[in-house]
């Protein structure tokens, strides 16, 4: 019997769209900005229902982010979304100076994130966005595990903070499994399974893969704690330390470059508070390629089997 059951298989972007529709209904100051690919990134949540609060700005991401900053100065809460790699990497200076330095409540949707965007290939696979944004003061980074959490992340971005917020989500249909009644709090994490052999710190799509790895390892009498790190910045330092103390070794798992990602954030916490042997699952300093999402996750070692191997390695190093 699996610890978690799949409610449905849906892309996380649907949660973004649903959440956006709901917050726009609740808060008249929420506005949307379109960068041409409105529907596919979930901006239809506002564009389709509140057309007078939606500004189409065309294929011009630098302007889109900065116009959002200007709108925020008039009391609006602007949401901007596009391919994660373009809305972050192309606009990094705008994000740094106009949004973060001014600490304006611009909410950014990083859609189609990770290698699981698949056949489009390397140019469209955002694997560096977390690293780039982690270094920007005032920026909050949320990386929900499924559609249910993505919807909650949109609410949290509006209700829990006046800071800029980045919400990272994917295109591929993935298991939706988190409990809809669970809280989603910026700066917290969620323990999904409890075990004393190794702790797996996972984020985004790899949270489900970590749960699958948990089941495989359980068959081999290896018991893992799985922590869903849905808030990467700020990160849940107390829970990381507490689980590290129980398990004495760790694995980090994310659909992102190992350098500078969620794993790096966890390792920074461990190194300064409670150093333990840690293995890191993620993209290993290379670009992706075309292929089916699951094929790519396997080829680039960002799936359940990669996590299983990493756990065994970490335990050996205890």
């Amino acid at each position: 019997m699996a610890t978690y059951t799949i409610k449905q298989i849906v892309p996380t972007r649907l949660g973004f769209s649903k959440g956006l529709h709901a917050v726009a209904k609740q808060y008249p100051q929420v506005v949307g900005i379109g960068s041409d690919i409105t529907n596919s990134v979930g901006m239809d949540g506002i564009a389709a229902h509140f057309p007078d609060r939606f500004y189409s700005l065309g294929i011009a991401e630098q302007n889109a982010i900065t116009v959002a900053a200007g709108l925020a100065l008039t009391g609006k809460i602007p949401f901007v979304a596009s391919y994660a790699t373009f809305i972050v990497m192309r606009t990094l200076d705008q994000l740094r100076v106009s949004v973060c330095y001014n600490n304006l409540p611009v909410k950014i949707g990083g859609a189609h994130a990770g290698i699981s965007v698949g056949p489009d290939g390397a140019t469209h696979q955002a694997l560096e966005d977390i690293a780039a944004l982690r270094s920007l003061p005032n920026m909050i980074i949320l990386s929900p595990a499924d559609a249910t959490q993505t919807e909650k992340a949109v609410w949290a971005a509006v209700e829990q903070t006046n800071n800029p917020v980045y919400i990272r989500y994917g295109r591929e249909a993935m298991p939706d499994f988190t409990n809809e009644h669970e809280e989603f709090i910026i700066g917290k994490s969620k323990i999904l399974t409890e075990g004393k052999d190794c702790v797996i710190y996972a984020t985004g799509h790899l949270v489900w893969e970590a749960l699958e790895a948990y089941e495989i390892l359980k068959q081999q009498n290896i018991y893992c704690t799985v922590l869903n790190i849905y808030s990467i910045k700020p990160i849940d330092i107390p829970s990381i330390i507490q689980t590290a103390k129980i398990c004495q070794c760790a694995v980090t798992a994310e659909e992102h470059q190992i350098m500078g990602g969620m794993g790096s954030a966890v390792v920074e916490v461990l190194a300064t508070h409670y150093p333990i042997p840690t293995e890191m699952v993620g993209m290993n300093d290379c670009f992706g390629e075309s292929g089916q999402p699951l094929e790519l996750m396997r080829k680039y070692h960002m799936d359940r089997m990669a996590i299983v191997e990493a756990v065994k390695k970490a335990i050996q190093r205890k």
Binding site: T66, V67, A69, G70, L71, L73, G75, K76, S98
Partner: peptide, 11 residues
């Protein structure tokens, strides 16, 4: 100018 554009839209 992008900031100003956003401001003008919002106003």
């Amino acid at each position: 100018l992008s900031i100003a554009t956003g401001l003008a839209l919002g106003l």
